[in-house]
């Protein structure tokens, strides 16, 4: 039996979310995903992204990347604002606004000059945005919006698998795995991801079943549109999704989990109402 994971205390929930953000930040430092490591890169790659274009029109990424101290300042700003938001509960909303600003500048600059755009970073911003509000009612409304956004992206991903014919195409996931792991096939055939993928590609039926499981995990978030009672199960499904996609496909989905935290917060008032509904 899994204990109730829901958190009813706003401050505690916020602390846990910021704590998880800091854990990911440590992972980012370890992975060299910080501006100081990319300092001095000479060309940018905004691709088709309008926000990157606007940022380069303003010019701040080009100025920052050229100056080591500015890179360090932005990186420190991200870590510092997150730590302050964790401990200074009284001014948390202000620190969160600062964190979002520093993190935005950092990510736009880093991703443009590394030619690597991480889409799932949007989830972190949507998850952190409600924390910028002190008023309980506005915080709750933004949290609700963030929760709908999470449901939407998972459902649209499931829908795309169905609508594009990937789900019903026999052996399609086996092909995806072969394409995904061409580097591991050459460099590290002993890698756990490659060994799992190889087993799946050799038995395409299991690969198809795995893809269906992936689809069903995403599609199960439809339940969240109608009720909040399954939220903690959806959170567990999301953790399973992030871990298995990392293990099998070497895809980093842990940013998505930041947004997943919205599934665990149920304010006290809402809990009472849930129980009232159950009793009546």
């Amino acid at each position: 039996m899994i204990p109730n994971l829901s958190i009813h205390n706003r401050s505690r929930w916020e602390s846990l979310l910021i704590g998880y953000f800091l854990v990911l930040l440590v992972f980012r430092i370890y992975s060299s995903a910080m501006l100081v490591f990319a300092h001095g890169q000479t060309f940018h790659s905004p691709d088709l992204d309008y926000t990157f274009w606007f940022s380069h029109l303003l010019g701040f990424p080009d100025v920052i990347i050229r100056h080591y101290w500015l890179c360090l300042l932005v990186d420190t700003g991200v870590a510092g604002a997150a730590v302050m938001a964790l401990f200074d509960k009284k001014n948390r909303a202000v620190w969160m606004a600062a964190l979002m600003l520093f993190f935005f500048i950092q990510r736009i600059t880093l991703e443009s000059f590394s030619a690597s755009h991480t889409k799932s970073i949007a989830c972190i911003f949507v998850a952190l945005f409600p924390l910028c509000f002190r008023k309980e009612e506005r915080f709750a409304l933004m949290m609700e919006g963030a929760r709908y956004f999470l449901l939407f992206i998972l459902l649209i991903s499931a829908w795309n698998k169905w609508a594009n014919g990937a789900l019903l195409s026999e052996g399609n996931f086996a092909n995806m795995l072969i394409n995904q792991h061409s580097d591991l096939a050459v460099y590290a055939p002993q890698h756990i991801s490659y060994r799992i993928a190889q087993w799946l590609t050799e038995t395409p039926l299991f690969a198809d079943i795995a893809y269906w499981l992936l689809f069903l995990t995403q599609a199960s978030f439809i339940i969240g549109v109608f009720t909040r009672r399954a939220d903690q199960w959806l959170f567990i499904a999301l953790i399973a999704f992030a871990i298995t996609t990392y293990l099998v496909m070497r895809i980093y989905n842990f940013d998505l989990l930041v947004l997943g935290w919205v599934l665990l917060y149920i304010p006290k008032k809402k809990v009472n109402r849930l129980y009232d509904n159950m009793l009546n």
Partner: peptide, 25 residues
């Protein structure tokens, strides 16, 4: 199908794929 921050267009690994005969690394 344009990826623009902070919007999230999630359509990767959602299409039919074939294995090419040759690849270059």
């Amino acid at each position: 199908r344009i990826h623009t921050f902070p919007w999230f267009v999630w359509d990767m690994y959602s299409r039919t794929e074939t294995v090419p005969e040759t690849i270059t690394q």
